[in-house]
Write a protein that binds this DNA or RNA. Structure first.
Length: 433
RNA sequence: GGAGAGAUGGCUGAGUGGCCGAAAGCGACGGUUUGCUAAACCGUUAUACGGGUUAAACCGUAUCGGGGGUUCGAAUCCCCCUCUCUCCGCCA
């Protein structure tokens, strides 16, 4: 959520920054300014009225104590009317506030000044690349072919169980998935300073609002209903990412400055309806309704936000380096960034069988945008309450990592060579052909 | 799922209609005292919004789990909801 004071004081700056990300909706900002004005006007009136009512009420109390009943009754008649007026105005304020909030919750974050201007993914600058595209001495197979040959994933039965976009990992495939999860958690906790947490996979809607998923992207989530009780619909959702529960751990808290930075690392499955994406890359494992991911979340002091973002990207990159996978880091341009983010770096790993790069990580600094929504603050040494920066990054998404790993490390004989750091987890150095 | 108890400030805990943004204790912070530590003593100690100010000071409003109601006035009375605890049932 944007700071209403910022919108009030620098509306043109806000308009300009929103326009930069292609969300420049002048009408909305004007509406916000108008509602804000209305709200404050009504507030002033009602508060003044309440102050008077409180005053007279106190007097009534004093009169009652002195047993001056008639005088007290006279005052009561006087304040009764004020009470009715207060009720009306209170309702008015609540309505204006609700209207204002509805807009504010749908306005995306402002991109950081250093983010490249652009409209689409085609304009995302590449920041760096690591390694080279592997040159295989044979025509690389697609992960789909590999999975079928080595029986790592049973696509047909996954679809039978839950519909298209759901995977049934089998055998070495299941073990590889589990090994990767554990490898990632161990790496980030023991080498990168994160604290492991295991969150719920179903969250209340406030969590979704807190991270900026809702209300704008409500159609992308799986909603959960308890049995036949339709009244429970809209209360709980399957997590689209561990960010939803983990970033909200300290929602509505006031942290001590000494507690920061907080760094959490969490595995969770991720459930995405992918509404509107039907038919786009539906074959294979690249776009699915459920995938595993290890997520990194940081809550930090504002002045440390961008240093921490750099480190976060580095933590995710380390994964690919250890697994011997070629990748590039790109910065998302203003037009391609996610709703809550002020700056985002994506990591794209090379998948030889696809002949393309796959996004396996997205690392963002949302600054105080999410902290505002979830009312998460920290108290500075001087006693001031401030909103921290909240960062999130995939470290990393698994299904696509799985794809890149198979396609990169496939051997001429059809087996898959397991990268050194993963071998203890696989208890094998290759998946046999 | 059934029955009962409860939810008050950083914590413990008092408060059953006005004198209560809230006693007391603990903790924390500042100060006095002190060779050091400890103790003692004094003081301070929530949040948001609005007004005000260069910034403060300051003023107002709201907040005692959440929402609604009664009343001139609600932590206190009434209704609904959420959560926690105890017992029973069920269950991985």
């Amino acid at each position: 959520m944007l700071d209403i004071k910022l919108i009030r004081e620098q509306p043109d700056h806000v308009r300009e920054r929103l326009a930069a990300r292609g969300a420049g909706d002048d009408a909305k900002i004007s509406e916000v300014l108008d509602l804000d004005e209305q709200r404050r006007k009504a507030l002033m009136e009602v508060e003044q009225l309440k102050a008077e009512r409180n005053k007279v009420s106190k007097e009534i109390g004093a009169l009652m104590a002195q047993k001056k009943t008639e005088e007290a009754e006279a005052r009561k008649r006087q304040t009764r009317e004020m009470g009715d007026r207060v009720t009306v105005l209170d309702k008015q304020v609540a309505e204006v506030e609700a209207a204002l909030n509805a807009i504010l919750l749908r306005l995306p974050n402002l991109p950081h000044a250093k983010v490249a201007l652009g409209r689409t993914a085609a304009e995302n600058p590449t920041v760096r690349t690591w390694g080279d595209k592997p040159t295989l001495p044979f025509k690389p197979k697609s992960h789909i072919e590999i999975c079928e040959q080595l029986k790592l994933v049973d696509f047909a039965r996954g679809a039978k169980l839950s519909g298209s976009g759901f995977l049934l990992y089998t055998n070495w495939g299941a073990r590889l998935e589990r090994a990767l999860i554990q490898f990632l958690l161990d790496l980030h906790t023991s080498e990168h300073g994160y604290t492991e947490v295991a969150p719920p996979y179903i969250v209340g809607r406030e969590c979704m609002v807190g991270v900026g998923q809702f209300p704008k992207f409500e159609d992308q989530a799986y909603a959960v209903q308890e049995g036949q009780d339709e009244a429970t619909m809209g209360k709980l959702y399957l997590v689209p990412t561990a960010e939803a529960p983990v970033a909200n751990i300290h929602r509505e808290e006031i942290l001590k400055e000494s507690q920061l930075p907080i760094r959490y690392c969490a595995y969770s499955p991720c459930f995405r309806a992918e509404a509107g994406a039907a038919g786009v890359g539906t074959r294979g494992m690249i776009r699915v309704h459920q995938f595993d991911k290890v997520e990194l979340i940081k809550i930090v002091k504002p002045e440390e936000g961008y240093d921490e973002l750099e480190k976060l990207v580095g933590n995710a990159e380390r994964v690919l380096q250890l697994l011997g996978l070629h990748y590039k880091v790109i910065q998302l341009c203003t037009g391609d960034m996610g709703f809550a983010s002020a700056m985002t770096f994506d990591i794209e790993v090379w998948a030889p069988g696809q002949d393309q790069y796959l996004e396996v990580s997205s690392c963002s600094n949302c600054e105080d945008f999410q902290a505002r929504r979830m009312n998460l603050r920290f108290k500075t040494e001087s006693g001031e309450n401030k909103f921290p920066h909240i960062l999130n990054g995939s470290g990393t998404a698994l299904a696509r990592l799985f794809v890149a790993l198979l396609e990169t490390h496939q051997q001429a004989d059809g087996s898959i060579l397991i990268p050194e750091p993963l071998r203890p987890y696989m208890r094998a150095d290759r998946i046999p052909a």
